[in-house]
């Protein structure tokens, strides 16, 4: 029961400071609107551009809301309180992962079909993109949260986190942009999930004691 409470708590936290709840979706819309101005309106492979920018905006929105995952709770002491309520740390971390994914990726998934209309992306293509995003984005969120847990104590957090995360995102971006590789993406997400859970629990124990 507390597991869902934690997820709801994080979602409320994200929703109340509404700046970063809509950040992901607004990112995507902003970038997509810029495409025709940058590349001209009669570009042949709009769908590849569209697909690529979706993945870039997912990566950007995760990177920008990284410190809301663990850092804000760590700094004001709430993380210790949560850990001391004796909920198993694995559940706490997993709740953080899921709430971070919902706050970041669900808005984008909602926006994709709408934005698709702007770029003559058929329903079939939109569905294909959505399955890819559903398969790949959890992995990216897991990695992002794990690295932010790992680097709780570091001073220059911003750039440093991005430098670690970018190489780890490359496999997701590569397979994300391809039509038929949603299974590979799912596999990558699962591997990322296992390792991220393990690393986050390790670093939370490190910082909490």
């Amino acid at each position: 029961m507390q597991f869902y409470n934690l997820i709801i708590r994080d979602l409320k936290l994200a929703f109340y400071s509404s700046t970063n709840f809509l950040l992901a979706a607004s990112f995507l819309i902003l970038i997509l609107i810029l495409i025709p101005f940058v590349f001209g309106s009669n570009v042949s492979n709009f769908s590849l551009l569209f697909r690529g920018f979706i993945w870039i905006s997912i990566a950007l929105s995760i990177l920008l809301t990284l410190d809301r995952v663990f850092n804000s709770d760590y700094e004001d002491g709430n993380l210790d309180t949560i850990i001391l309520t004796q909920i198993p740390i694995e559940l706490i971390v997993f709740a953080k992962f899921i709430s971070h994914w919902i706050a970041n990726c669900i808005p984008i998934i909602i926006v994709i079909p709408l934005a698709g209309i702007l770029f003559e992306i058929g329903i079939q293509d939109s569905l294909n993109i959505i399955t890819n995003v559903l398969a790949g984005s959890p992995g990216m969120v897991f990695i992002g949260s794990a690295i932010s847990a790992l680097t709780l104590g570091s001073k220059r957090a911003g750039i440093y986190k991005t430098i670690i995360i970018i190489p780890l995102y490359i496999p997701f971006i590569i397979f994300g942009a391809d039509q038929e590789s949603s299974l590979v993406l799912l596999g990558l997400s699962m591997i990322a999930g296992v390792f991220s859970l393990f690393i986050s629990v390790y670093s939370l124990r490190l910082y909490a004691e």
Binding site: T151, Y160, I164
Partner: peptide, 9 residues
């Protein structure tokens, strides 16, 4: 990334 860990923590 590895080298920066030592410097920033």
């Amino acid at each position: 990334a590895y080298i920066m860990t030592w410097q920033s923590i």
